[in-house]
């Protein structure tokens, strides 16, 4: 399947999980989807077969609330049966509302923001120590940039010249209480990261080709980690969800659910 269409099919899985469970963070799931599709279908060397080896690429979902998107991708990549998605957030399920390494394919537990980049720094350092060729990818949210611990990790990543580390900022401009600029100004992400010594690439973040090009460019950079500022649309793919702050973790009702699936089908169909 064309990967651009795949991103819309996976969005349907996300909507389905959230509709069933009556919980989830739909807006950020939809904004981050092309990043995950590029990493898991094109870029990262990580499969159910090599996941327990020493040599695969590593991924940390630092914006852990977008776990539904990650579960949808991992299931589709064969890390666990797709049927398991139906147990999301049900009583006793291991498929809880933030990433947990009880789920095959997930290495680190996240949920509290501001941890993932430091984990990525540690993973990338281990790769350098052992002279491994694996790469490390971390996905963060733009609201998360208010966490001070992120900037401790940004400092360390540049200090240790971790060119095997690529971070993403899902720059969708919204967080739970409003725009990032209303809540805590996150303008000029590119300048902030550059000032800390990172290689910075800015892309339209729901454009799969643009993301893929950026990840390729990051691999060629030496002695610096790369951040890809992915300018995304929160709720991307469903017109009435897009750019709506209320849809940070709103659950679709029956009508909205049907309308969402229909629109995602239509938008995906253009890539057939």
């Amino acid at each position: 399947m064309n990967l651009k269409k795949k991103a819309y099919e996976l969005r349907k899985d996300v909507v389905d999980m959230i509709y069933r469970a009556k919980t989830g963070h739909i807006g950020g799931d939809l904004s981050v989807m092309e990043i995950l599709v590029d990493l898991y279908y094109k870029q990262m060397n990580v499969t159910p077969e090599n996941f327990n080896s020493d040599d695969h690429d590593h991924f940390v979902m630092s914006k852990g609330h977008s776990v539904e998107a990650l579960y949808a991708v991992l299931a589709d990549r064969g890390f666990f049966p797709k049927e398991d998605l139906k147990t999301f957030a049900t009583f006793g399920s291991k498929y809880i509302g933030h990433p947990t390494n009880k789920v095959n394919g997930i290495e680190m537990n996240t949920g509290s923001l501001g941890h993932g980049l430091g984990v990525g720094v540690g993973m990338a350092l281990a790769g350098k120590m052992d002279e491994k060729n694996y790469r490390v990818y971390v996905v963060m949210g733009d609201g998360e940039m208010a966490e001070g611990s992120v900037w401790e990790a940004v400092t360390a990543g540049a200090h240790y010249k971790l060119d095997n580390l690529t971070a993403f900022v899902d720059r969708n401009h919204l967080q739970i209480s409003g725009t990032t600029e209303q809540v805590m100004n996150q303008k000029s992400q590119e300048a902030r990261w550059a000032a800390f010594g990172w290689n910075v690439i800015s892309v339209p973040g729901n454009d799969l080709d643009a993301i893929d090009n950026a990840v390729e460019l990051a691999k060629k950079v030496k002695d610096k980690p790369t951040v890809i500022i992915a300018h995304t649309i929160k709720g991307c793919g469903i017109s009435f969800v897009e750019n709506q702050v209320g849809w940070h973790h709103h659950v679709p009702n029956d009508e909205e659910y049907q309308a969402a699936l229909k629109e995602l089908d239509e938008r995906g169909a253009q890539y057939e």
Binding site: D54, H58, V60, E107, M108, H115, G118, V119, G120, V121, G122, M123, A124, L125, A126, G127, M129, D130, S149, A153, A156
Partner: peptide, 11 residues
């Protein structure tokens, strides 16, 4: 956190 990342990769 860095210590945990290192440990996740076998350290």
């Amino acid at each position: 956190t860095i210590a945990a990342g290192l440990a996740a990769c076998g350290k």
